[in-house]
Nucleic acid binder design. Structure first.
Lengths: 204, 204
DNA sequence: TTATAATCGTGATGTATGTCACACGACAAT
DNA sequence: ATTGTCGTGTGACATACATCACGATTATAA
């Protein structure tokens, strides 16, 4: 009985921590009063997914963008030959979606799938717009996030332009040392744009 | 004498057209009253550059971002071996800068240089912030632009992940058919991430 | 004009990386 | 225990691409 209660309490207390995570994340860029944050939070829904679950499926419509509270996801593009290409890993504290499909309300060009069990706050486009309109502050937050995303993508392009497979691997290793204990090398290879065999042969 | 007057009038009438270009560009995304637009415009300065001029030099601080009214620029990353890599072409109607350096007030990692004679509206960070604060509408405009830029960069990454040199060339050709009459193939090659010799050998 | 850059193509050759095949251990499901 | 799937390494070979070298043409500047 006591154990039962505990079991029931865990999700609640963990939800409290989740909220704090989102709040702290936003407040790194813009200050919010408690009321403002509760207003913000009311536009999100908290969701849990298991390893291999899809949050977005290529070809389907994209209703939400996601803030990753815990876990790990991959944003994947499947080409015509059925090969998988990892456009991005989405880790804790990241915002992810197929933003093109999300904002223009078109079909997803990419999938978003769990590499680990993952919990997220999800935000519908309608709520995104409502939030932006009613709390202009948050629009500044999204703008900063978008800029950061743009810059990150540009750096990845520069990496492709200037570096070979080994150098790109080293850059990734330096940028996200934690990643390598969490994901199989096949996925790392797919992110780097090389075959898993080539990656395996790179000597360090 | 009459010719003299004409000469003096050209810049003025052309400046009028420039303003219209900016106005129409913004109004594709958000409506503006005439007064609002004049307020917006007052934060910009209009500048003309000649072929090969630098708007941003790698290693220097970045004071402005630019809206390209006419002409053509390249955003270039020079690697340690002195090789040039084109991160982006900036054509008419594009916003460009080393945004990372611009927003974080650090030294430029890239250069922005004219491929053709170019005229721009330039916006200082201070004015960017003033404008965003005093006219929240414009913040939504910048957000939409930033999202679009992010998505464009992500598509370029997908192109690197999924396609070989020839396919990337064809994609670029399809996306910007006009570009190929305006810039030497060496620059196209540099944008695609292949040597100019390889590009030259691709058969079409 | 003449001289000096750019630009572009193309051969010869080297190298990075892809592809196919196979083996082996870790782990999961039954 | 048994079977299967997944992750990983590695050999053999094919291929895409880089690099170096040379000419030829076309702009550009003195």
């Amino acid at each position: 009985m006591y154990i039962h209660q505990l079991k029931h309490n865990i999700p609640n207390s963990s939800f409290y921590l989740m909220k704090e995570k989102l709040k702290e994340h936003i407040e790194k860029l813009i200050p919010l009063t408690d009321d403002e944050f509760l207003f913000v939070l009311s536009h999100f829904s908290f969701e849990k997914y298991k390893k291999n679950d899809f949050l977005i499926q290529q070809g389907e419509s994209v209703k939400h963008c996601y803030f990753v509270v815990s876990g790990l996801l991959k944003l994947v593009y499947d080409d015509k030959d059925g090969k998988q290409h990892i456009v991005s890993f989405a880790m804790e504290d990241w915002w992810e979606s197929d933003f093109s499909a999300y904002f223009t309300q078109t079909k997803a060009k990419m999938s978003l799938q769990c590499i680990e069990n993952t919990s997220v706050f999800s935000l519908s486009l309608k709520n995104y717009e409502k939030l932006s309109t009613e709390l202009p502050k948050i629009e500044r937050f999204f703008l900063k996030k978008s800029n950061a995303g743009h810059i990150a993508s540009q750096n990845r392009i520069i990496s492709f332009l200037t570096s070979n497979a080994k150098e790109r691997y080293e850059q990734l290793l330096k940028q996200y040392p934690l990643l390598f204990q969490r994901v199989p090398k096949t996925l790392i290879a797919s992110y780097l744009g090389v075959s898993r065999e080539t990656l395996s042969r790179l000597s360090f």
